[in-house]
Computed example of a mutant assay.
Amino acid sequence: MCGRFSLTATPEEVQELFGLEEIEDFPPRYNIAPTQPILVITGDRRREEGDNRTDRRALLARWGFLPGWVKDPAEFPLLINARSETAAEKASFRAAMRHRRVLIAASGFYEWHRPGKGSKEKSTPYWIKPRHGGIVAFGGLMETYMSADGAEMDTAAVLTVGPNREVAPIHDRMPVVIHPEDFSRWLDCLNQEPRHVADLMAPAPDDYFEAIRVSDLVNKVANSGPEVQEPATDAPAAPGSEKPARKPKAADPADKQMKLF
């Protein structure tokens, strides 16, 4: 699962990586939580004869997927993640998996190591980022939800997969990572059916990420500065044996971080 992540790259860096013609300015965000806006990249296949290029554009979507058939969002569970193994068959994600695959720009994500049942230890947070820095593209799904009064809202979820060697001691799921050489194939929903991109939904290589134990500052959404990514000050230890941190609280939709965009 992925319940928090970060995007601290500059707009120019995002524009260059994803091949965007234009992008609006945005601030660094160190503690992105569910229900907040996230930056997604869509790809629309150009239909002119002989033109095989893909138009890409960046837009904001609420992190929390809403299928078009939902009647009352207040009574529908918050879908921030979708299991890649079953998304193509699930009613909630089937249409988006076929027609609205997106890339979600990130600098890394947070995960919590949770002790086993009966343990008195608390959860321990980790900042998991590309070992060599830079931007990572999560595989995602998007749906534009239309309410009964006609208002539209773009919503999105992060696809997840089983962990690689680095993440496995911390959690049993991780975001799907789409590499730059696969951007076009992932975004080409006109020609690439879910079965054609199933091979892309695999754990990232074992040496792709590094996990850094951080303090429990990240547990609180109001803590939105770079300090949430600083290594914990006490001596590092293996997952399950170090000083634990509190489990993160659910995000408040009215949190001031919603006003960053």
Rank of each mutant, 00 (worst) to 15 (best):
L217C: 06
A33V: 09
T35V: 12
G134M: 02
D207V: 00
A222G: 04
F183W: 08
E230F: 07
A202P: 00
L66E: 07
A245I: 01
I23T: 09
E89T: 15
F93P: 11
T42G: 09
E16Y: 02
F65I: 06
R213D: 12
D252G: 01
E242M: 05
K256D: 13
E12W: 05
K247R: 14
A198Y: 05
E143C: 12
D207W: 00
R83C: 07
W186S: 09
P67I: 07
T160S: 12
A156R: 09
P194N: 04
L17H: 05
A95K: 13
G118I: 06
A95T: 11
G50Y: 05
H196T: 08
R173G: 06
D255W: 03
R94V: 10
I104N: 14
M174G: 03
M153H: 03
V102G: 11
E143S: 15
P77Q: 14
V214K: 09
D149H: 00
A235K: 13
R56L: 13
L200M: 12
D149G: 01
S241K: 09
E227Y: 01
A211T: 03
C2S: 03
A157M: 15
H113T: 04
V197W: 09
I170P: 07
K120G: 15
W63D: 12
L66V: 12
G108F: 03
G43Y: 11
W186K: 11
V167M: 15
V40I: 15
A105C: 01
V228P: 03
A251T: 06
F109E: 06
M174R: 01
C189T: 15
D207F: 01
A137E: 08
P175V: 05
E16I: 06
L159E: 04
D25P: 03
L200G: 03
G50R: 09
F18S: 02
G68M: 03
Q192C: 14
I128M: 01
F138Q: 02
K122I: 07
W63F: 02
E227N: 06
K129R: 12
G139A: 10
A156T: 12
P180S: 06
K122R: 15
P11A: 04
L78Y: 06
P67L: 01
E16C: 02
P11C: 05
A9C: 09
K243S: 10
D72Q: 02
D216H: 13
A157L: 14
L217E: 13
E242T: 07
E230R: 11
R173D: 09
S119A: 13
T8Q: 12
G140P: 09
I135F: 03
